[in-house]
């Protein structure tokens, strides 16, 4: 199952590294990464494959959220389907 991870917040050193380390630790494979700085806000979007994840989707979602809160970042993971449904016919 593919999902989208989004990271939004003030730019700081090591954001990508810490998110990637967390995902790798749970066996989540990163398929694609894009990032931009929008009005001084760091925005990173990752396409990931969670089929090899060692924890449930809900636990992964909570782990990402918690790790974001430590750094004042909003990190979320959502199944890719919701974006497909909304933006593609």
């Amino acid at each position: 199952m593919r999902a989208i991870v989004t990271v939004i917040g003030k730019d700081q050193v090591g954001i990508i590294a810490s998110v990637c380390t967390l995902l790798a630790g749970y066996g989540v494979n990163i398929l694609d990464i894009s990032q931009t700085i929008l009005r001084e806000y760091f925005t990173m979007i990752m396409l990931v494959d969670v089929s090899g994840s060692t924890i449930s989707f809900d636990e992964l979602s909570k782990a990402l959220k918690a790790s974001g809160q430590e750094k004042n970042l909003s990190i979320r993971i959502q199944r890719e389907d919701i974006f497909e449904a909304m933006h593609r016919i």
């Binding site: 989208i4 989004t6 939004i8 694609d32 894009s34 931009t36 925005t43 979007i45 396409l47 979320r76 890719e80 919701i82 974006f83 497909e84 909304m86 933006h87 593609r88």
Partner: peptide
């Protein structure tokens, strides 16, 4: 892949 702006639009 879905475009970044579309993802951000949904989240917004």
């Amino acid at each position: 892949m879905i475009h970044a702006s579309e993802i951000m639009q949904t989240i917004e």
